[in-house]
Each structure stands twice: as structure tokens, then as C-alpha cells.
Amino acid sequence: MGRSRKPLRMADKEAVFKIATRSLPDRYAAQIAVGMTDAELLTALEAVLGIFGGSAGPGSLHVSQQGAGLKIWGSWEIHNTHTEPPLFQGKHTLAMARRVYQIADPDDTQLSLF
């Protein structure tokens, strides 16, 4: 029988993402300022996420991350990264990084609408 979990709100998912990638804005500030291609952002995220890591504590979000596949898990309880799907993976991690840290893609020729 499975245990019930406290659901994650969108703000919680964004907090999980920021915890897992917290060193990105500092380590890659110059590149973020001028924009990063998908390949550059992929390399940066792999470095930031590392081989495997995480953080947790009483009353805080439990976060796990893995650079291979750009995977990020998060929950309010302990989670099993072998049986539970990540919150973010692959292209969704790239898209979230662009949204959260406002990283432009110099390869995108679409003009900004705003």
C-alpha cells in the first residue's frame, strides 16, 4: 500500500528547481547575461547538477539531482529516485532553466513579443 504524499504546488516545484540549480546563476553569470545555446546550457546544467546529489531537512523540501539526463526530483517527504519519476528531465529542465533564470537562446531567431 502506498503512502499519501503532500502534493507539490507549482511554487514548490520552482523552489525544488532553484535548490537543485542554485549555483548556476553565480557560476555562469557572464554566459547567462549574453545568452546560452541549448548545448551550452546543457553542459552548464550537467556541471551544476553533478553526478548525483541532493538536500533535505525537517520541514523542508527533499531534493535530488543528477546531471546525466538533467533529472531533478523533489517532494516534501523522502523519495526513491529509482522508482519515482523526476519532476524535471531533459528538455523540460532546459526550458525551466530558461524561464527561471531568464536565459536567452542566441540561436532562437524568433523576435521577442514583449
Rank of each mutant, 00 (worst) to 15 (best):
R27G: 00
T21C: 13
K18T: 12
V16F: 10
Q31N: 01
L42Q: 07
A15T: 12
D38W: 07
P25S: 12
L42C: 06
E14A: 13
A20I: 06
L49F: 06
D38L: 01
T21W: 11
R27C: 06
A30C: 01
A33H: 03
T43D: 05
A44R: 03
R27N: 03
L42A: 05
P25L: 02
A29D: 14
R22M: 14
S23C: 03
M10T: 15
T21Q: 08
G35Q: 07
V34G: 05
G50M: 13
A47S: 14
E14D: 15
E40V: 05
E40R: 00
L8M: 04
T43S: 11
I32E: 02
P7N: 04
V16N: 05
M10E: 15
P25H: 06
A33D: 13
L8K: 02
L49T: 01
A39G: 12
K18W: 04
P25G: 07
F52Y: 14
F52K: 13
E46R: 15
L45F: 06
A33Q: 15
Q31A: 11
A11P: 08
D12H: 14
S23V: 08
T21L: 06
L24W: 04
A47R: 08
A47K: 14
L45W: 10
S23D: 05
A20C: 05
A33P: 10
E46C: 14
L42V: 08
A47C: 01
A47W: 08
R9A: 07
M36D: 05
Y28L: 00
K18Y: 06
K13D: 01
I19T: 11
V16C: 11
D26T: 14
I51F: 14
L49K: 01
T43M: 11
D12P: 07
V34N: 05
L24Q: 04
P7V: 11
G50I: 09
A20P: 14
A11W: 11
V34R: 15
P7Y: 10
L42G: 10
T37A: 04
E46Y: 04
D26F: 12
R9Q: 15
A20F: 06
V48N: 02
D38A: 08
K18N: 02
E14N: 13
K13H: 13
L45P: 04
A44C: 00
A39C: 10
P7D: 08
V48Q: 00
G50N: 05
R22C: 11
A33I: 08
A15E: 15
T37C: 07
Y28C: 00
A29K: 15
L41W: 00
T43G: 11
R27A: 02
V48C: 08
E46V: 10
